[in-house]
Design a protein around this nucleic acid. Structure first.
Length: 305
DNA sequence: GGTCTTCGGACTCTAATTTG
DNA sequence: CAAATTAGAGTCCGAAGACC
C-alpha cells in the first residue's frame, strides 16, 4: 500500500463513523454532507478491501476488520492532533528549538547575560550567536542560517523586517595615568592618539572612521581585535585608547582595570548608533522567533543610553 | 526553465432511489 | 419512515503539453 496516495481525511471519516455508529451523525460531526461521508466510506472500503461497516437497522455496525484497525487509527489521529496543536500554540517552556542570532561585532557581553537569564528561566530554547558579513545579512536570514540579527541600520529588501531597539552612547577609555589623555579631552588630542578598534570584521572602516574620513580627518588604529575585555586590559597597560559603546561590556568600565572613562571630545563626529533587530518575513509568524524578539526588545529597552 | 492552457480524475453537492 | 446509497452536475487541482 502506498501511504503517500492515501487521503488522510478518510481516516478521520472512518473514526467518526465508528464513534457515531452512523453515516448521518458522522457527517454532522465533520460538517460534511451525508453523501460525502457515504462516498468517503466507499473509498475506505476499496482501500481496505473490506465493507468495514454493515447496516443493521439504523446502525452501522463495524466489521471485525474495522474493530481491529480503529484503535491504531484513533491513536495516530490523536498523536497528529497533538503535534499540530503544539506547532500552532508555542510554549517557550516546552519548545525544543535552537535559534541563531547574528551579531556583527563583539556585542555579546552587553545584552547576552540578561538575555540568557531570561531564556534559561522561561524556555527550553538553545541559543547560538554568530558573526557575519553585513553583505550577507539578507541571504543568511532567508536561508535560516540566522533567525535574527542585531545591527545598525542596513540596506535590505522588503523581505527582511526590522525593528529599532536602542541608540548607543559612546565613551572613551584611557589608562588612569595616561600622559596626554584626561578630563577635558579635546578632538585634536583624541586624533593624535593611537587607537584600538573592536570588531569581528577583518576589513573595512567603522562608522566613526568613515565619518572622520568624510570630514577630512582620520585616527591611527594600531590594533583591531574582537573582544572588548581584551581591549580594555590593553588600554590599562598601554597608551592606546578605546572608543566604545557606553554600556557594552560594562565590566570594561569597572575595576580591576581602573581606566579613565571619558566623554567623547566635542566635535567628534559620532554617527547615531541606533541598533536594529532584523528577521526574515518568512519567520515573522514563527512563535519561537517572535518570542525571542520580544525578549531581546525587553532586555535592550531598559539600558540607559 | 518558467508560465499559461487544457484535460482528466477526484471530490462534494443536490436530488432521487433503495434498503431495513 | 429514517438512513444509506446512487446518479448526475459542478468545482477544484494536478499533470501534461504548448509557448516564450
Amino acid at each position: 500500500m502506498n501511504t503517500a496516495r492515501i487521503d488522510l481525511n478518510l481516516l478521520v471519516v472512518f473514526e467518526a463513523i465508528y464513534t457515531e455508529g452512523s453515516v448521518t451523525r458522522a457527517s454532522a460531526r465533520l460538517n460534511l454532507t451525508q453523501p460525502a461521508i457515504s462516498h468517503a466510506l466507499g473509498r475506505l472500503r476499496t482501500l481496505f478491501g473490506d465493507p468495514l461497516f454493515t447496516r443493521q437497522g439504523h446502525a452501522m455496525v463495524p466489521t471485525p476488520m474495522a474493530r481491529s484497525i480503529v484503535e491504531p487509527i484513533a491513536s495516530s489521529l490523536r498523536t497528529l492532533d497533538g503535534t499540530l496543536s503544539r506547532a500552532f500554540s508555542f510554549d517557550p517552556g516546552k519548545a525544543q528549538r535552537i535559534l541563531t542570532v547574528g551579531l556583527p561585532g563583539g556585542e555579546e557581553s552587553s545584552f547576552l547575560p540578561p538575555l540568557m537569564r531570561r531564556v534559561l528561566e522561561a524556555s527550553c530554547i538553545d541559543l547560538v550567536t554568530v558573526s557575519y558579513d553585513r553583505a550577507q545579512l539578507e541571504s543568511r536570514l532567508a536561508s535560516g542560517k540566522m533567525d535574527l540579527a542585531l545591527d545598525i541600520l542596513l540596506p535590505h529588501s522588503t523581505q527582511v523586517l526590522h525593528q529599532p531597539l536602542v541608540v548607543e552612547q559612546r565613551v572613551v577609555l584611557a589608562r588612569k595615568d595616561h600622559p596626554t589623555v584626561g578630563p577635558g579631552l579635546d578632538l585634536e588630542t583624541y586624533l593624535a592618539q593611537q587607537h584600538i578598534h573592536v570588531t569581528s570584521i577583518r576589513q573595512g572602516d567603522s562608522l566613526l572612521d568613515t565619518e572622520l574620513s568624510r570630514l577630512g580627518m582620520q585616527r591611527r588604529i594600531r590594533l583591531r581585535c574582537q573582544d572588548y575585555l581584551a581591549a580594555c586590559r590593553i588600554v590599562a597597560e598601554t597608551d592606546l585608547i578605546l572608543t566604545m559603546p557606553a554600556e557594552l561590556a560594562p565590566e570594561c568600565l569597572a575595576a580591576p582595570y581602573d581606566n579613565q572613562v571619558l566623554p567623547p571630545p566635542v566635535g567628534l563626529p559620532l554617527p547615531g548608533m541606533e541598533l536594529y533587530l532584523y528577521w526574515h518575513g518568512s519567520a515573522d509568524g514563527d512563535p519561537a522567533n517572535r518570542w525571542l524578539r520580544e525578549q531581546l526588545a525587553q532586555v535592550l529597552a531598559p539600558m540607559p543610553r
